[in-house]
Amino acid sequence: MNKNGTLTVVGTGIRVAGDMTINAQAQITKADIVYTLVPDKVSKQWLTRLNANTVDLTDFYGSNKSRLLTYHQMAQLLIESVTQGNNVCAAFYGHPGVFAYASHLAIRQLKTLGYRATMEPGISAEDWLFADLGIDPGKSGCLSIEATQFLFYQRTIDPYALLVLWQIGLVGDHTLSLDKTDSYQQGLNVLTDELLKFYPSDHEVIIYEAATLALFSSRIERVALTQLPNVTLTAISTLVIPPYQEAPLDKEILAKFNLTAEDINNSLAIDNK
């Protein structure tokens, strides 16, 4: 049996108000207290309208303070509120479980303590990216990864798949404490050099930033890979690298199915449908 006090983590989506699910809205409205982690005044005003008893978690951010500590403090506050018997809602922008350390940490620890703690999905920046760019990640497969992790660790590039690198405006930062995106040039140069080992210099890449207001358009800036070091980046910039070419068929595997390349091509021909 669960103890008194619950945590429900919900996402506000990227375009606040419009992106929020009906269920997320209901969870916010009925909660005893709502802890919010949203980056702008529009979102805060909307959430306060839904539930006047809101607490802004962005107060935990500090200059030159590690975000790891910040996120632990956020999670701790959520845990304390639940253990006091409150029905807590935590509203995070985007999808509350994507690039969201504090929400997962709080849920994990509360479950260990015997409390009910759940998460509702929200619309993420990646969802907007696929919609705005008209890209289906199922077509070629997709590697979606934080840019600095991609550089610092030995990862495999698949030039036949879509590559999405997040937080490109902070690429190369190991401090976890940058306040502004003004230190990415070295990281961007190194990243470009690495990508040029797998893609031609004229391969088109895209800088993407989802619009948070319907009044504005999302940023979709297409440049040749070799020009990547010259672009201006922000904290919400994402680098999208389309597949270089179609993957060749593996004839050895096809042979195990008694298939040929022609069989596959015939199946994919629209004339046969």
Partner: peptide, 22 residues
């Protein structure tokens, strides 16, 4: 308009910046 909406995209405050650790 962005200033009034407090929606700066150059500052990291309020953003769920993830870690580089795998």
């Amino acid at each position: 308009i962005e200033r009034r909406c407090d929606s700066s995209t150059t500052e990291t405050k309020g953003l769920m910046i993830s870690f580089f650790k795998s």
